[in-house]
Design a protein around this nucleic acid. Structure first.
Lengths: 339, 339
DNA sequence: CTGTTAGCGCCTTCAG
DNA sequence: CTGAAGGCGCTAACAG
């Protein structure tokens, strides 16, 4: 593969002149420039970004480390991050951790060696240790979706507590009292906050919180299915089910269907996170919708700013609202609306 | 940020010894190794992969250039590619072209400059020119999902023609005669082949192909919606609709709903590409399902082999079968099953 | 087992 | 407007 010296000798100039043609064409006489450009063309020369990065210590690369691209929520985030990044000349390396701290650590280590210019990280657990390795190297990071208490970093997330609160309240208004909370892993801040919102709504309504109805699981369809199946095998059934995310609710719906029950006739189901309307034809689930595209865009914006103006901006937290969307998966207890 | 020389001087060895501790630890005496490792630890030294890449001309990076990560089909492909790549120590750069040849060209150019080790490319148009720039540089490529006639490259794709044929046949067996084909962009081989399969099924059944029922559009929800809306505004309506992909069918379903018609009572709808069952609760669409996870995995396997053993393997084409899955979006004409 | 030399391809600095 | 020297960080190749 031709290099800058090949181009230089073919066009009878020094390598630095070729470099200038590439980076500051206006500082080279038109005649020389034309000669160099002809040589570039002839040799099919393609500048080596690796060498450039070595000199400049900039890779124009962002790392997007998330839990699972397969969840449409993260798919949208990934799309918006890539859009925002490529508009500014950055490429994106995608990594799926599956909420596994070991995988996450391994990825972060590889990415630090690669000298990515910045990280967009969805930490597998909400602990400062998740971002420590990055901060120690003074590489810009923005944490997505989750808090990391004790770490001085930018965070862009949704208001999980309010989302869960709104959903729980909605269920209560429909007459539900036996509301099961299918939580995510409690080591993750969003799971914690969603349980908090659930508790607050119950307490405010004067309904005692029954710990029996709070079940911890993973943010996956399989886990939602498993936990809901357990619940449905018991003698007293809940009249409503709050999934901590879309996947949990989808798994739960499957369990309910397989148990021969109907949504919402027998059990109402709702969750945080929407499923894109264009994916499902007629959306069915009542949800507290986040704005994944926004989330990714805002986070990328913050990250690029950090990269461009290092050390200027103090860490900040952006909290986006969720939107309650009432659809057909929730109904009044026994099918009678109480309003 | 500490470099290899800092580690070397702190541990009183030469840089090359540090390098050996990192890459061939067994070739360094345990005592020296321990000293070096202590220094690495103390300095928080992280090897610079950029410098390593410059020396080795290997970046351990694959480029995944697809049309839109937002389509669950491509989401699955992306996931499988990332899984397979990271298992072999490769990272993946993700790019969305939106079927735009200009965007594609821009991405390819940037990625060649970055010296990615290989490309997984979904070409925006099925033409050899799409991969020319890559082949000219002798960089390994695998083309995903689409043919590129005239180019000597590995291709991993599904059998679109057979998929469309199976769907059309299914509709014919249900008594349909007025079947509209909502095609994708005909510059893309999959669109072409899906129309071919549609034609073959009709012809074999002795039903004349009415060009009026074949409509070209994009592989998007919006386009499916627009084209179907047009169709539904005419005086003679089709009794069934074949979407060239999932998004087209989803858009069409929306148009049908908005026209006050029902699926399948008034119009049957079917398409190539499934929507993951776990996303939609009770899957509704009759489809010819591809295996995106397989597709990505197989393609990545071929690509990594090309990278490891350059110039050894002749170009090959892998064609994966599609599976006809009959669900509730198709029914016999007038609701009467003809079987 | 350890070290010296040199160079991967580029661009900043300083001269001309 | 053009060029020479040097170094970014790392590791082959070749000593010793």
């Amino acid at each position: 593969m031709a290099n800058i010296r090949d181009v230089a000798s073919l066009s009878n100039v020094s390598p630095i002149t070729v470099s200038r043609v590439l980076n500051n064409p206006e500082r080279v006489s038109p005649a020389t420039r034309a000669r160099v450009e002809a040589a570039i063309e002839e040799l099919g020369y393609i500048p080596n970004q690796i060498a450039r990065s070595l000199r400049s210590s900039r890779t124009n690369t962002l790392a997007l480390v998330l839990t699972d691209i397969t969840n449409p929520f993260w798919t949208s985030v990934a799309r918006s991050v890539e859009d925002a990044a490529s508009a500014q000349g950055f490429n994106v390396i995608l990594c799926n951790t599956d909420e596994d701290e070991k995988k996450q650590a391994e990825y972060l280590s590889v990415l630090l060696r690669r000298r990515v210019d910045g990280f967009l990280l969805v930490p597998a657990r909400s602990e400062a240790s998740a971002v420590e390795s990055i901060l120690r190297q003074k590489v810009p990071v923005v944490v997505l979706d989750r808090r990391v208490p004790g770490a001085d970093v930018d965070v862009v997330r949704s208001d999980s507590e309010a989302g869960a609160y709104a959903l729980t309240r909605h269920l209560i208004e429909q007459g539900h009292r036996q509301i099961a909370m299918l939580s995510g892993p409690l080591g993750v801040s969003t799971a914690q906050e969603r349980v908090d919102g659930y508790r607050r709504a119950l307490t405010e309504a004067g309904i005692p919180v029954d710990e029996h109805w709070i079940r911890e699981g993973e943010y996956t369809v399989e886990s939602g299915y498993a936990v809901a199946s357990e619940l449905l095998a018991e003698t007293v059934l809940p009249s409503a089910l709050l999934g901590a995310n879309n996947f949990i609710a989808l798994g739960a719906m499957r369990a309910i269907r397989e148990a021969g029950l109907a949504v919402p006739e027998n059990i109402s189901v709702t969750c945080i996170d929407d499923i894109p309307a264009w994916l499902v034809g007629e959306p069915f689930l009542t949800v507290a919708a986040q704005s994944p595209y926004d989330l990714g865009g805002r986070a990328t914006g913050l990250l690029l700013r950090q990269i461009r103006e290092p050390g200027v901006h103090p860490a900040q937290e952006i909290v986006l609202p969720t939107e309650l969307i009432v659809r057909r998966s929730t109904a009044a207890v026994n099918g009678n609306h109480t309003e």
